[in-house]
Design a protein around this nucleic acid. Structure first.
Ligand SMILES: [Zn+2]
Ligand SMILES: [Zn+2]
Ligand SMILES: [Zn+2]
Ligand SMILES: [Zn+2]
Lengths: 136, 136
DNA sequence: GCTTGACCCTGTAGTTGCTACAGGGTGCAT
DNA sequence: ATGCACCCTGTAGCAACTACAGGGTCAAGC
């Protein structure tokens, strides 16, 4: 399959596929006579793994480690569990941080009564963290 | 006040202050004879506004607009309200997305029973979005 | 046989919001 | 005079792509 087909089959931008190859996340595929990349099912599965992991928020480096484990089925899977658990913790931390931020923004936005910028409580609140609840 | 003092007074990295000046977010301050930057209270207030807005997640471009309003107190503040509301919506969307992601990750992580990578349900789940609840 | 259009190639530069040097100058204390 | 802390400019790096520019390939239709 050519790169355009792989792109459609996985919902991945063509430039992104070439980028993954360049950074060594995907193996360089065979080439046709015209020097076109030629992919097989294994490439597609690997790219799906990468894209799905990216959608779940794993970094490229984490994915590299996960792929490495996937390539060595005889190894212990504890590393995979560790990477995924650590990532889950980071996601939870990010949610907590954004929630605090949302609360603060809600409070700030709710204070605008319209009128002149000079009297705007939103602009005032942005300049003064002392007005904040302190959670962010 | 010199850049180091401003840095300490606002908790901002010196390089970041110079960066903000370079991109036109902070006005270029006066210079001493030795060509050192010399800041006043207005600079400090402006930098606090910028940092606080960044902590609340506003982009540099949004902050540019907010500062512009802050500099023109005779204008209508509706734009500030619009920017802040739109940002709040984005934060809420991000929280929703991360929550879906957290649920999916929790499900995936919970399936690992240890053992060989070849049998690991975590690695399997990363390769197959079909196993996902579909929310992410 | 020739053009048109879709597709592919490489290589480089841009995005966001910083951060980290390298290589040099300044100012004060010992 | 010699440290040392501080300041200056300019450039390059980070993550994870994305967007060209400038060119080659191939099948269809006239
Ligand atoms: Zn207002
Ligand atoms: Zn605050
Ligand atoms: Zn496992
Ligand atoms: Zn999924």
């Amino acid at each position: 399959m050519k790169i355009g087909e792989l792109s459609r089959a996985t919902g991945t931008n063509i430039e992104t596929i070439r980028y993954y190859e360049r950074i060594g996340l995907l193996p360089a595929p065979a080439r046709t006579d015209a020097n076109y990349r030629s992919y097989g099912d294994a490439h597609r599965a690997r790219l799906r793994f990468v894209r799905h992991s990216r959608e779940l928020g794993f970094t490229i480096d984490e994915i590299r480690s996960l792929l490495d484990l996937s390539d060595h089925p005889e190894r212990d899977c504890a590393d995979a569990d560790r990477i995924a658990s650590a990532h889950l913790e980071q996601v939870e931390a990010k949610i907590a941080q954004l929630s605090a931020l949302r609360d603060e923004l809600t409070r700030i936005v709710g204070r605008c009564r319209g009128g002149l910028a000079g009297d705007c409580r939103v602009i005032e609140a942005l300049g003064d963290h002392g007005q904040c609840g302190g959670a962010h």
